[in-house]
Design a protein around this nucleic acid. Structure first.
Length: 815
RNA sequence: GCCCCGGUGGCGGAAUUGGCAGACGCGGCGGAUUCAAAAUCCGUUGCCGAAAGGCAUGAGGGUUCAAGUCCCUCCCGGGGCACCA
């Protein structure tokens, strides 16, 4: 196995069959992209699966005559490098580049069909200078801005997190419960693109897994409703609330403001002193509640009455105002009108605080005041003045019109999506290219000063302490203001590493370009990515951000498409005995061990053959030894062929020729529909047929045997490159089989000259006939009826109906 | 709680539009080869039955000449969302 690697790797390096950058190359282009890895160590089983699957696609399109760009790089910024630095005192850069070298060598041995001329590392200044450049473009457009806000804070990593990076209240990286902190941070205005992120999904329908589209739709969370303006007693300015149920306005019995909102604080200040004290106590308690606890679904409702009142604009009723934590400060306007009869959360609160419940929609269900179950369905409006008798939809439009006329509200849209918080208080990332000047404020770093490279880690205190380690690099931080030359300071935060991956696919077009992040002409030729392959863990994070960046770049005129990834394949995970592999569980399978034991080809084949690519693979169900056995069976075919290279297959053994062309045809179709396991099954069938032909059919000298063996080598080259190359050589061809080309399928060989016709009586199979595929219905019916078994089953009964689907099926229905 | 997606032999999984259920493989069993083992090769392998035949795609019902596939109800598993007004 090792000898085979030693033999072919230099040959492949030399021939570079997957080089894609030749401007004279006339082949049509295709861009196949695997999600790039984080260099945390050597490759593991998960990488082995992902890259085996991506390789099938890339190598297939090369065989089909395309100039396939299949690049690889490293998502090289991020916390593990820094944590290693803290634990072991190594330089994050040195640690990272060492791991990259290890992974790169492993990928080469794993025979990944990457174009090695296009490698990039996001931690190279040549890459991240363009992060800074893009940041400045967004800053100019007002799409990058700083604001104070209550943000997600990971106490373990000592950094802020974007909303997308908090999973069920836990830090996505380290599973530590996330807390909230009031901080001024940098954001990208992704919410400006909420509608387009939703609407452009129409382009992806059928091309992306439905599941991913659904998750993104939920994440953006568009809802339609109305803003309603409420006057507040003893306050000049009114307060606007957002509601999806303006039709229930007459059912509002109280008013709630988010406890942690500025409005709550303000209302409490001008309330009686006892209220102020109670409020402050409550707020303190809310602040100490972790995100995990806050999200617990069965938590009782809590709050404080502020002894203030809002006025219902339609009936002038006084609604008591409460501060509570079930209303979120950063959604809508941070305040709601509460309609306990028709909203479960409001009802729970009303019952806890003894507030009235007024039903305004008669849904025919039990009265919520008694049942404790809010009714949310449709029905006739009651107790609602001019709305009485209308149904939900009519009431919504009627009330919006009324509010609009009185200037008390209007129809609006709201989103669950929040702006993307991109600053991080950590070292190993892209410095934010802003200089803070006391006089000039936030000053962008002039473009000719890019990149702002990271200061050396030596001498910096890397320990997480809530502020960026970059703050300790005084020489680096203190700079003159680019505008006024006065003393100023660099921004010391670094960018979220998801910024890197939001556009890296464009950098592959020319990773060494020094004048721009990418070349527009090349983007026209190659983009968007035709096939993206990666894990479903990025369903929201990376894929949403990349879609956002692409739209921004489109608006800025840098690209002419609005979606970056035309087609998406999510591969599953490799697990062991039903659960994710981990050292602590003791079910870790080491890729390197597997490779030593069974070889690269057998591991790749096992990954591809295990099942559909999107399903998880349980390694305990997989037989790499079986894969190895099959590969040597296939390989042996190539040694048995005795006909000369280039022999005309015409006139060769007809049945085997049909088998070959059938396999090529079905195999191609299987690859194009992501049924890679079925493609392998078709190759296995062809190997079996060829073996039979050699041993007991027309013999090894038949031209059809050579044709079959060559087809096996070519199909196998998608999965098992070493075995395929060995076969190709033994069959008398020069390397490399990767560029041999997919043999043209002879359509005439796809039609069988005899098919099996199933004859049923009352839907049960009673006979099978060998018939010509062109047999006509009448002949087939007579033939079927004449069959002895059919006659026995009919048992003298008359045939009431005969369904004839020539040439494959006849069904007699007796009277 | 809401929304998706699944449930097919001992196991992983096949099955264009409703038309031979179980392709291909793993494992098992039997045999050949071998002093023996490994490797390899051949055969066999859904269940019941001696056979004819019958029964089988989570359970139950329905549509149809015909259902793994379509419709309804339920059970189980996996995933996503979860105070977003």
């Amino acid at each position: 196995m090792l000898a085979t690697q030693e033999k072919w790797l230099p040959v492949w390096d030399d021939l570079a069959p997957f080089r894609s950058g030749d401007p004279a190359d006339v082949r049509p282009k295709k861009y196949v992209l695997d999600m790039f890895p984080y260099p945390s160590g050597d490759l593991h089983m998960g990488h082995a699966e992902a890259y085996a699957l991506g390789d099938v696609v890339a190598r297939y399109w090369v065989q089909r005559g395309y100039n396939v760009m299949h690049p690889i790089g490293w998502d090289a910024f991020g916390l593990p490098a820094e944590n290693a630095a803290i634990r072991r005192g190594v330089d994050p850069a040195a640690w990272t580049y060492e791991n990259i070298a290890t992974q790169k060598a492993s990928m080469r041995r794993y025979a990944c069909s990457f174009d090695w001329d296009r490698v990039l590392n996001t931690c190279d200044p040549e890459f991240y200078r363009w992060n800074q450049w893009l940041f400045l473009r967004l800053f100019e457009k007002g799409l990058a801005y700083r604001k104070p806000s209550l943000v997600n804070w990971c106490p373990n990593d000592q950094t802020v997190l974007a909303n997308e990076q908090v999973v069920a209240g836990l830090c996505e990286r380290c599973d530590t419960p996330v807390t909230k902190k009031k901080l001024t941070q940098w954001y990208f205005r992704i919410t400006d693109y909420a509608d387009r992120l939703l609407d452009d999904m129409a382009q992806l329908e059928g091309q992306w897994p439905e599941k991913v589209l659904l998750m993104q739709r939920n994440w953006v969370g568009r809802s339609t409703g109305a803003d309603v303006v409420f006057e507040i007693e003893d306050r000049d300015a009114p307060v606007t609330v957002y509601t999806t149920r303006p039709d229930t306005l007459y059912g509002a019995t109280f008013f709630v403001v988010a406890a942690d909102s500025d409005l709550a604080a303000e209302l409490a200040v001008s309330a009686p002193e006892t209220v102020g004290r109670a409020f402050n106590e409550y707020l303190e308690q809310v602040r100490q509640t972790s995100e995990v606890d806050r999200l617990a679904s069965d938590r009782p409702k809590t709050g404080v009455f502020l002894e203030r009142y809002a006025i219902n604009p339609v009936n002038g009723e006084r609604l008591p105002i409460y501060a509570a934590d079930y209303v979120l400060a950063d959604y809508g306007h941070g305040a709601i009108m509460a309609v306990p009869a028709h909203d479960q959360r409001d009802l729970d609160f009303a019952r806890a605080f003894g507030l009235p419940v007024v039903t305004v929609v008669d849904t025919g269900e039990d009265d919520p005041a008694g049942s404790g179950i809010a009714t949310t369905g449709d029905g006739a409006m009651v107790n609602s003045g001019p709305l009485d008798g209308l149904d939900k939809a009519a009431a919504i439009s009627a009330i919006i019109e009324i509010l609009h006329d009185k200037q008390h509200g209007e129809a609006t849209v709201n989103y669950r999506l929040r702006d993307w918080l991109i600053s991080r208080q950590r070292y190993w990332g892209t410095p934010i290219p802003i200089i803070h000047c006391l006089d000039c404020g936030e000053v962008p770093v002039p473009e000719d000063q890019l990149p702002i490279t990271l200061p050396r880690s030596e001498g910096l205190d890397m320990k997480p302490k809530g502020t960026s380690p970059l703050g300790g690099a005084t020489d680096w931080v203190n700079v003159p203001c680019p505008t006024c030359e006065g003393p100023a300071m660099r921004d010391t935060d670094t960018m979220d590493t998801f910024v890197d991956s939001s556009w890296y696919f464009l950098r592959f077009l020319d990773p060494n370009l020094e004048t721009a992040p990418f070349d527009g002409e090349q983007a026209k030729e190659w983009m968007p990515v035709d096939q993206y392959v990666g894990g479903v863990t990025h369903a929201i994070l990376h894929l949403l951000y990349s879609r956002f960046f692409t739209k921004v770049l489109f608006d800025l005129g840098y690209v002419d498409f609005t979606e970056p990834f035309t087609r998406l394949l999510n591969q599953g995970m490799v697990v062991m005995n039903g659960s994710a592999m981990s050292k602590s569980r003791g079910n870790l399978v080491r890729l390197s061990d597997e490779l030593v034991e069974n070889g690269v080809d057998a591991i790749r084949l096992s990954m591809v053959f295990a099942g559909p690519p999107e399903d998880d693979i349980d390694w305990s169900d997989v037989s790499p030894a079986g894969s190895r056995k099959f590969l040597s069976r296939a390989w042996r075919l190539s040694g048995d062929v005795t006909s000369p290279v280039g022999v005309d297959p015409q006139g060769g053994h007809a049945a085997l020729r049909k088998a070959t062309h059938h396999a090529l045809h079905e195999g191609a179709h299987a690859v194009e529909t992501f049924r890679f396991n079925s493609m392998v099954a078709r190759v296995m069938e062809l190997v079996n047929s060829t073996r039979k032909a050699i041993d007991s059919g027309p013999g090894p000298g038949d031209p059809a045997v050579r044709e079959a063996a060559e087809a096996v080598a070519i199909m196998l080259s998608l999965v098992a490159p070493y075995t395929a190359e060995e076969m190709w050589e033994r069959l008398g061809h020069p390397p490399t089989v990767a560029r041999a080309g997919w043999p043209e399928v002879d359509e005439s060989l796809l039609v069988a000259d005899e098919v099996t016709c199933v004859v049923q009586v009352s839907g049960k199979v009673r006979a099978r006939l060998q018939v010509s595929p062109s047999i006509d219905e009448d002949t087939l019916r007579e033939l079927a009826l004449a069959d002895a078994n059919v006659q026995r089953s009919l048992d003298g009964r008359e045939v009431r109906t005969a369904i004839v689907r020539a040439p494959k099926l006849v069904n007699f229905v007796p009277a």
